[in-house]
C-alpha cells in the first residue's frame, strides 16, 4: 500500500478516536463541574483539563478566564483550535477524502455525513438540545464509523493501519482521561483512598469511558481508586484500557511489519508486556500520575516511529 495512503488511514482513525475521547473528557469534566462547588474550583477543573490536553495556552490566547461556556465553545466549535471536535471531525473527513478510493463506500459516506452534520451544529443548537445529547452524538458517530470499518473493510493492510491509528490514539486518550481525574482529587485525599464525596467523581469517570457497569460486573464491590485504575490500565478485557489498546497496537503492528520496523515492534511489545504482567500496586508505589505521563511519552515516541517506518515516503 502507498505510504501516503497508510498515513491518511492512520490519521483518519486517530482523529475520529480523538473526537470521541474529547467528547468523553468534556462530558466527564462537565458533569463534575456541576457538583456543588465555587466558581474558582470549576475554573481550576477546566484549566486542569486543558493543561492535560495541552491546549491551555491556545485557550488563554482567546479567552481571559475559564468558564464552562467558553471552554465548551473552544473545545467543540473553535475552528482555530486543532483539538476541537469540529477540527477533529474535519480532519477525519479530509483524510478519508484523500483516500476515499481505499475505503468502502459505506465508510467514506459515514465520515462524510458526520462532517456535514457537524458543520450544521451551532452553539445555540447545542444549548437547546443539551451538551449531553451532543456528546452522545459524537460517540455514536465514532461507534458507527468503527462498526462500518470492521463490518465492511477487507482485512488487509488498510484495516491494520486504521486499527493502529485507533488504538494508539485511544491509549494516549485514556491516559489523559485518567490524568484529568487525578487533577481533581479532593485536597488531602491520597491516591489510594476514596472519599465518600469522591464517589460521584469516580462513577462519572467510569461512565465517561463506558465502564461503570463493567466495573460492577468485574469487581462486584464498591468503587475504589485502585480498582478503577486497575480496570482502565491493566485489564486487557476492558476495551478502552491501556492494556487492551497496547495489545491491539502491538498485534496490528506485527502484521504490517516491514524491513525497517523491528525496533518499533520491540518497543511496542515491551510496553504491552509491562501492562500484561504489571500490578497496579507497584504502579501506584511509583506515583500514578508520573506513570501516566511516562506512558504517554512512550506512546508519542511510538507514533513518531510508526511514521518514520511506514508513513513518511522513503527516499529512493
Amino acid at each position: 500500500m502507498l505510504s501516503r495512503t497508510a498515513d491518511h488511514l492512520f490519521w483518519m482513525a486517530r482523529y475520529m478516536e480523538r473526537a470521541e475521547n474529547t467528547a468523553r473528557i468534556l462530558d466527564v469534566t462537565y458533569r463534575l463541574s456541576l457538583l456543588p462547588q465555587n466558581g474558582e474550583e470549576v475554573a481550576a477543573m477546566w484549566s486542569g483539563m486543558l493543561k492535560i490536553m495541552e491546549l491551555q495556552d491556545a485557550y488563554l490566547a482567546k479567552y481571559p478566564a475559564y468558564s464552562t461556556e467558553s471552554v465548551l465553545e473552544f473545545m467543540i466549535f473553535d475552528r482555530d483550535n486543532p483539538g476541537s471536535i469540529y477540527r477533529c471531525l474535519r480532519a477525519t473527513r479530509e483524510n478519508a477524502h484523500a483516500v476515499r478510493g481505499t475505503l468502502t463506500s459505506e465508510l467514506w459516506e459515514t465520515s462524510n455525513e458526520t462532517w456535514l452534520k457537524m458543520r450544521d451544529f451551532t452553539v445555540a443548537k447545542l444549548l437547546e438540545s443539551g451538551t449531553g445529547a451532543f456528546f452522545e452524538w459524537v460517540k455514536y458517530r465514532s461507534h458507527l464509523s468503527r462498526g462500518v470499518t470492521i463490518g465492511t473493510m477487507l482485512q488487509d493492510e488498510a484495516l491494520r493501519f486504521i486499527r493502529l491509528g485507533t488504538f494508539l490514539e485511544r491509549a494516549d486518550n485514556t491516559a489523559r482521561i485518567l490524568e484529568v481525574k487525578y487533577l481533581n482529587l479532593l485536597p488531602g485525599a491520597d491516591e489510594e483512598t476514596a472519599h465518600a464525596a469522591d464517589y460521584y467523581q469516580w462513577s462519572a469517570l467510569l461512565q465517561s469511558v463506558s465502564a461503570f457497569e463493567v466495573y460492577r460486573k468485574v469487581y462486584r464491590d464498591q468503587i475504589t481508586p485502585l480498582r478503577v485504575a486497575e480496570l482502565l490500565v491493566l485489564r486487557a478485557d476492558m476495551p478502552r484500557s491501556l492494556a487492551r489498546s497496547m495489545k491491539e497496537v502491538y498485534s496490528n503492528l506485527t502484521r504490517v511489519s516491514n524491513a525497517r520496523s523491528a525496533e518499533t515492534e520491540r518497543l511496542a511489545g515491551e510496553l504491552e508486556s509491562h501492562l500484561r504482567f504489571g500490578r497496579i500496586e507497584r504502579i501506584f508505589e511509583g506515583g500514578f500520575r508520573k506513570y501516566l505521563e511516562d506512558f504517554r511519552d512512550r506512546i508519542f515516541d511510538l507514533g513518531c516511529r510508526i511514521s518514520d517506518d511506514f508513513l513518511i515516503p522513503a527516499s529512493s
Partner: peptide, 17 residues
C-alpha cells in the same frame, strides 16, 4: 509525490518499500 524514477523506471513508495 508518491512516485519516483530510478534508472528510467517508475516506482511508487509503499509501506513495504
Amino acid at each position: 509525490q508518491d512516485l519516483f524514477v530510478s534508472d528510467d523506471q517508475v516506482f511508487m513508495r509503499t509501506t513495504q518499500g
